[in-house]
Design a protein around this nucleic acid. Structure first.
Lengths: 112, 112
DNA sequence: CTGTATCCCAGTGGATACTG
DNA sequence: CAGTATCCACTGGGATACAG
């Protein structure tokens, strides 16, 4: 997206282009808690395949919101963390978390 | 999603399930500005097809975040607006808008 | 105007096997 | 461990035609 300049820089569309999909948002949720290894994220983001995880991490790296650090060890270790730009997205994930918490409380726990 | 109870109510995942895709977020952006007719949204959400718009509006209606009101006129008029639940998502879109604004300012307007 | 109904293609993403 | 490489199924989404 963002290919056509007919989008005169809508802020919401810009953000959506960077993290407006399920997997990126869930990966963000984990990385906001701190640096993580590949397999950790794979385990924590429920249902994601190795392929899709790799693809999304690469995109996020290219967009400058994720930093990838390779440690030349055996077995290999690769750590992913948020860049400063990535961390600046924290308020968005937080607001989603806040809303979700309320929603669950009010709508999914009708056991009053 | 949310089919497997292996998701022990993660707030972010819950929110992502409801509005974690491009089109819904952009539709939200418009409806947060006020009630709109079908064709208005179609015009304002750049690139969306009639079919996809209808599908997403139906899903959002079923999820209780959008209200659909039909006026028995000729030609027909249908107005879409946010429910109270839908409007409660405002902070999320706002934080995305805020972040996008900063991002554009800092990264896409390097004309200093 | 506001849809529904088809057809169909491209891309997303799952499963599996293999590698450094 | 952290990928890459395939193969493939499914579906999101475009185009088009038609309807109330």
């Amino acid at each position: 997206m963002l290919t056509k300049e007919e989008l005169p820089f809508c802020p919401v569309a810009t953000t959506v282009d960077l993290i407006g999909n399920k997997w990126k948002l869930l990966i963000m949720r984990e990385l906001l808690k701190g640096t993580k290894r590949f397999n950790e994220i794979h385990r924590l983001v429920d249902g994601i395949s190795q392929k899709v995880l790799t693809e999304n991490l690469r995109k996020m790296e290219n967009d400058g919101i994720v930093k990838r650090e390779v440690f030349p060890e055996v077995p290999p270790r690769v750590e992913y963390s948020l860049t400063e730009l990535g961390d600046s997205l924290r308020p968005i994930i937080n607001s989603m978390s806040d809303w979700g918490t309320d929603y669950i409380k009010n709508n999914l726990m009708e056991q009053k």
